[in-house]
Design a binder for these strands. Structure first.
Lengths: 186, 186
DNA sequence: TACGATAGAGAACGATCGTTCTCATCGCAA
DNA sequence: TTGCGATGAGAACGATCGTTCTCTATCGTA
């Protein structure tokens, strides 16, 4: 047998992949068990319910998002470049073969009603991203309203790329962000 | 008894309201029947399956979206004002008490897998909107790439407003669109 | 080797859903 | 009035899902 930490990781990873590809409600716990190779009994010992597993999956997504953004920002020297690095991160993500839109938006649309934890988690994730952008905008010396505009571009790029099934929305949003930055800094 | 046209309208309207508020999979056909006041037998005589009812609901949403955009555009004199009228339409929509994001995005996130009709319908709706914006951008004498940027702002405003539960994303996106328009026309 | 605790495989359970079917009721033609 | 076709209300059916339970095999230890 493997220890609890490893079993948890395998279950969350398998559930993430399945939920993200097919939607939460379309995936049964049996499918998670098969994909993770962990018995149902063990899964329910690690997570009290499917909702708790969904929460763990969203937490995993949150960590991945933050790490991906931070990695791109680390290569950028200025606050302006760190802002644009967000769209470079999105560009790379949109090109991954299993990209299927923002997992938080998908989860919110599917589960917001009847699962208040999901609503709260998604709202907090988006608010945290807006704070991240707001800090960078302030560092860049640009006026505060620019932050919300940059965040809206990032959100719009995600849904546009997901539905179109093509990655060009990242570059288009990035170009728009550059124009907005230039206009704000004059 | 009421005639087929009226019964169809009542069923689609009730289903739209329920699906939009709670998600498609969370609403049973019994709930549609109760809300519409039309028997299950009649519903299945009008729509061969729940999927067909979902398709009819999306078609209704498409007509409402187009009518709402057209009504706002009718008040605008120039192509530039017609572009900005999109965000005025969004602002009014976001303030409706039952606003819950874009029904097409929600349906795509919930049903894209296992219901190809939904994927196609949503993709067509978004493509049609992009063509609408592209025509206005051309009429305004602005370069083509601006169209995709405007569309991304509109998409981002919808998801941002839905998740935050507040309408200010419309005004923020409109302000960004004005800056992009000004920069493109110089 | 014998034993007790444990874990996995999957059957079982209760609930729910989409869809179909039954049956009592009603309107209407002859 | 009588009989027939159609309709609505909702029971019924088969499938699926989240969750729990049973049974068997395995492992470490004395």
């Amino acid at each position: 047998m493997i220890d609890d930490t490893a079993a948890r990781a395998k279950v969350v990873e398998a559930a993430d992949q399945l939920f993200y590809a097919h939607g939460v409600q379309a995936v049964g716990m049996d499918a998670v068990r098969t994909a993770a190779g962990v018995s149902l009994k063990r899964i329910y010992a690690l997570f009290p319910s499917k909702d708790a597993l969904v929460a763990a999956v969203l937490e995993r997504r949150r960590a991945q998002w933050n790490a991906g953004i931070a990695a791109r920002a680390a290569d950028a020297a200025t606050a302006r470049e760190k802002i644009l690095a967000v769209f470079d991160f999105l560009d790379g993500w949109f090109r991954e073969p299993d990209f299927n839109g923002c997992a938080f938006i998908n989860a919110y649309g599917e589960l917001h009603d009847g699962n208040p934890d999901v609503t709260r988690t998604v709202r907090e994730q988006k608010a945290a991203f807006q704070r991240y952008v707001a800090d960078l905008v302030r560092d860049a010396g640009a006026p505060d309203p620019l932050a919300a505009q940059i965040a809206i571009l990032a959100e719009g790029a995600q849904t546009t790329a997901a539905i179109a099934g093509t990655p060009e929305a990242a570059a288009q949003a990035r170009a728009a962000a550059e124009v907005l930055l230039d206009a704000a800094m004059t």
